[in-house]
Simulated assay, not measured.
Amino acid sequence: MLKKVVIPVAGLGTRVLPASKAIPKEMLTVVDKPVIQHVVEEAIAAGFREIILVTRSGKQAIEDHFDHHYELEHELARKGKHELRAAVNDTIPDDVEIVSVRQPQALGLGHAVLCASHVVGDDDFAVILPDMVIDNPDGNRDLTAMAKRYAETGKGQIMVESVPEDQVQRYGIVDCGGANVEAGTSAEIKGMVEKPDVADAPSNLAIVGRYILPARVMELLKTTKPGAGGEIQLTDALLELTEESPLEAYNMRGKIYDCGNKAGLLQANVALGLRHPETAEALKAFIQGLDV
């Protein structure tokens, strides 16, 4: 059963400087929760119960956020602010464990995942990039659907989204052999290309930072040589995996916001803020009154 998810949080957050100079980028907020909490809640909803943070020095605020703050909880209880106390206290359910491991050097996503190998062990696992917030307004979460597909087929899953064809050079693109992969469905991956030229792109399906993978990936990462940028790339290990067993691309239904850059973070705040009961009315009125 899928229980473990690896979330690499060791990045420097250069795309959101100066905000991330002293605050981990994962602790920047979307409405009333830090980005990392949105991501962890997504994983928990999909059934994962062991959250493995791959971290570094200066990121303690992430771990503290999911810990108890007894003085704050006591003060909120004393003032009768029980709903707010529950929001602070119940950041994760009692049956969920958060484990932290260190990435001593920034040597790529593949290296970050490999740093968690001793915790993952022989279990299949997921990888979630912490900057990406997925919005499924209907409540049918894409990661949950992807985990279900994995349970049904036993095939590794990589989440993708359809992007405009003239933007494929910005992303890692999957090759599904020309298959028409409808939103909410999966198709077998024939290959993967990192930031291809528009003319050479095998599809417009871009990898968006959600993976469900067999334990075998960890063994492959141990022998994966540095690739693009001199870093150990997860994609290189996945390409090697496809020679042994099939991987599928799951085409997401929701909307993804890259909160690792300023525009994406602002967009996520507007989109989710317009549905939050405490902010929706005031935010909508503010936007309608803008003279832009």
Score class of each variant (00 low, 15 high):
18 P>R: 15
18 P>G: 12
18 P>F: 12
20 S>T: 14
20 S>M: 08
20 S>P: 02
21 K>V: 06
21 K>A: 13
21 K>N: 07
22 A>C: 00
22 A>E: 04
23 I>M: 10
23 I>R: 14
24 P>G: 04
24 P>K: 11
24 P>C: 04
25 K>G: 14
25 K>M: 14
25 K>W: 15
25 K>Q: 15
27 M>L: 14
27 M>A: 13
27 M>Y: 12
28 L>T: 14
28 L>A: 14
29 T>G: 04
29 T>W: 07
30 V>W: 07
30 V>L: 07
30 V>A: 11
31 V>A: 02
32 D>E: 08
32 D>P: 00
34 P>D: 04
35 V>H: 13
35 V>P: 08
35 V>A: 12
35 V>T: 15
35 V>L: 13
36 I>E: 01
38 H>T: 06
38 H>W: 11
38 H>D: 01
39 V>L: 01
40 V>G: 07
40 V>D: 01
42 E>T: 12
43 A>T: 02
43 A>M: 00
43 A>K: 01
44 I>S: 09
45 A>C: 00
45 A>N: 07
45 A>I: 10
46 A>K: 04
46 A>L: 01
47 G>E: 05
47 G>T: 05
47 G>C: 06
47 G>F: 06
48 F>E: 04
48 F>G: 01
48 F>D: 01
49 R>K: 08
49 R>M: 07
50 E>F: 11
52 I>Q: 06
52 I>C: 01
52 I>R: 08
52 I>Y: 09
53 L>A: 01
